[in-house]
Design a binder for these strands. Structure first.
Lengths: 230, 230
DNA sequence: CGATTGCTTGATACCTCTCAACCCAGGTGG
DNA sequence: CCACCTGGGTTGAGAGGTATCAAGCAATCG
């Protein structure tokens, strides 16, 4: 999915972590300091949350649903950069404006945080600055993996990677419940909706997955799916 | 080209810059503090500088030549993430190990810096932490643009974008002198070497560029080239 | 119900890859 | 001096993967 700022909170503190990966940080903590008022916002599917180039005065955390961040070409072609699920933070910028657009991939509730609070805190707080750096580097690592996928993988490899990625969040580790459309999957993988559909059907025919409904996918052969990548 | 940590040094300080984009930072400054010994290293073309997964105890700045950072699939397919030219910093990590491999794209001299120094400084110095954050976010923005290119652009659009990108560094703004092979260009754009070659020939036939030699490219119609993107 | 949305499937086109030959410049050594 | 080799680049013919265009299906919703 996306880079998760808050994910670190749930993980044990790494024993010999690098200096630059220190205490986890969460907007919640900032809430307590009273600096970052969090407004709860709801967006219907496909509603724009913000647009590339807008002044980046706010960042967001997903409360429920899925948000997507993406870029567009002038003729409408779209590349989705990441999906953001519950707990994920998105819209954090270093510059003055958003470098991506953000939209609700399905009905979606988010908390918004005023950036000024973070900026001000980070100005004094080296720890917070380090958190932001770690967050950015984590996003960067994801973006680099994504580039490898987009530039060098075939359709099957892309879809397999996508499924495995989403399955990691499921309790069983082999069930994927998609809250997003085929179009979103396609625009994330750099494919068309038809190719995504065909590839899923193909994988089902091979008995590598089972589609109980279009949005409910069971990974029946994790080893084989992993084999598509490396 | 790549994200440049030091590029900011040469640019006027933005008047109303966001809080998170403060004073430029350069390894040189750190040198003066005596914390980051800079060793000068030379790499012949295609020599490995470091490998994905290696312990990231060092980062680098290009003195001359071009370095590339990239990822590989198990069967050898390669995706180049970025090229780094004189002045560019690469190999900065938040985690314990490198997320990419780095190699000399041509004969290449780099300065190496011990990471410990930076880590230690950043621990106390909020300003340095902010610099690192800004650096990471700039890299992230480049990676996102790259993903759009890889996922959604055609071969001509990719090549045109590549040429325009490199021409920005040339004094005239319309001459590109490549120090890298067609294979590197291809692996950066997610194409094959033949497609890159054919596309360049195609652009030359259209009189949009002139190839005085394979490595010496003149952009004859910037407007038309820009038109390929948007 | 009819309309809409999301998804699947088929036929065909086309873009890029693959495989192969060839060119050119530079270096090496007989 | 030239034959030879090598690395980098170009070009061609054909194959193949994905896109495009189009039709149809199922579920949902007014």
């Amino acid at each position: 999915m996306s880079t998760r700022l808050s994910a670190a909170i749930h993980e044990p503190f790494p024993p010999a972590a690098a200096l630059l990966m220190l205490t986890p940080w969460s907007p919640h903590q900032a809430d307590h300091a009273g600096r970052l008022a969090g407004a709860l916002l709801h967006f219907d599917q496909d509603r724009e949350i913000y647009c590339e180039g807008d002044e980046a005065g706010t960042f967001f955390k997903v409360v429920s649903g899925v948000a997507r961040t993406c870029k567009f070409l002038s003729d409408g072609r779209r590349q989705i950069d990441a999906f953001h699920v519950t707990g994920d933070v998105f819209g954090v910028e270093a510059g003055p404006s958003y470098s991506l657009s953000a939209e609700a991939a399905c009905d979606c509730t988010v908390t918004s945080y005023r950036r000024r609070g973070i900026d001000a805190s980070a100005f004094h707080d080296a720890g917070l600055s380090r958190q932001l750096f770690a967050y950015a580097m984590q996003s960067l690592a994801r973006a680099q993996d994504h580039a490898l996928l987009l530039g060098r993988k075939s359709a099957v490899e892309k879809v397999a990677a996508f499924l495995l990625d989403w399955a990691k969040n499921s309790p069983s580790g082999q069930d994927v419940t998609l809250a997003i459309t085929r179009q979103d999957v396609a625009d994330y993988l750099g494919l068309t909706i038809e190719t995504v559909s065909r590839t899923l059907s193909h994988l089902e025919r091979q008995a590598l997955i089972a589609l109980s409904s279009p949005r409910q996918i069971r990974l029946r052969d994790l080893a084989a799916l992993r084999g598509f990548n490396a």
